[in-house]
């Protein structure tokens, strides 16, 4: 579903991505991990079209992305930090997004809105929300249009354990239906039981890309966190 070829991007002197080749497919939950500054966010932004790569190609569902922005209707994005216009009400945000994508038609996925009980705060302006509540809104926005691809940037960072569990439950539920979920996260243990594949980035290169089975057999560790740690140690040697 997502494929990149020789994807390269530099910011002034920093090489954020260097010749990144990868492929992610349906029915996968891919953990995008790597130390700070390894290029995770840049990769995500390139896929979303927020950052223009210097070279290489990105294919979404077999098509190279270019000027046409329609491909993004297949993607649901949950940003690391969601900030919304201060005086926009929560309900208005969903109204806005629905009317912007009215052409697509079809059913929207309101499950997260229901589970997070967002209807109760539909009349509240955005500026009154706490960081955690804003993350819930962001999550609900990402899942709203039932996309084929989910890109979740540090999704559980600001969520309380209960909300976090609701989100994980939701991911678990949709991944079976020809969906691809890409998650970046620092909290390794959170992702343990969801992840099917990992993608380890370092210094703008794909250092390691494998399925969980491969990872476990390669490192000999059962625990996800330990397996990752073991890879990081190897790469530092």
């Amino acid at each position: 579903m997502i494929e990149t070829r020789a994807l390269t991007k530099s910011f002034k002197r920093i090489r954020a991505l260097q010749q990144v080749d990868l492929s992610m497919n349906e029915n996968q939950v891919v953990s995008l991990i790597g130390p700070n500054g390894s290029g995770k966010t840049t990769l995500i932004k390139c896929i979303l079209g927020l950052v223009r790569p210097d070279g290489g190609e990105i294919h979404i569902n077999g098509r190279a992305i270019g000027e046409d922005f329609q491909y993004r209707s297949a993607i649901g994005y949950m940003p690391q930090i969601g900030r919304y216009p201060d005086h926009m009400k929560v309900g208005q945000l969903f109204d806005l997004l629905r009317s912007l994508r009215a052409k697509q038609g079809g059913q929207t996925d309101d499950e997260l809105i229901a589970h997070y009980r967002l209807e109760r705060i539909f009349d509240q302006p955005m500026r009154t929300l706490s960081g955690g509540t804003r993350q819930k809104v962001s999550a609900a926005v990402a899942f709203l249009f039932d996309p084929k691809i989910y890109i979740l940037d540090e999704p559980t960072a600001g969520l309380d354990p209960l909300s976090s569990e609701i989100l994980k439950e939701k991911i678990r539920k949709i991944r079976e239906h020809q969906r691809l979920v890409v998650i970046t996260s620092h909290i390794l243990s959170d992702l343990d039981d969801l992840t099917t594949h990992i993608l380890y980035l370092q210094d703008g290169r794909v250092h390691y890309q494998a399925s969980m089975e491969e990872l476990r057999s390669f490192t000999g560790e059962q625990k996800f966190g330990k397996a990752i740690a073991s890879i990081m140690q190897q790469s530092n040697r």
């Binding site: 922005f69 919304y84 962001s138």
Partner: peptide, 8 residues
């Protein structure tokens, strides 16, 4: 950024 992640 959020808007640009939409098909806009």
């Amino acid at each position: 950024e959020m808007l640009l992640a939409q098909p806009l």
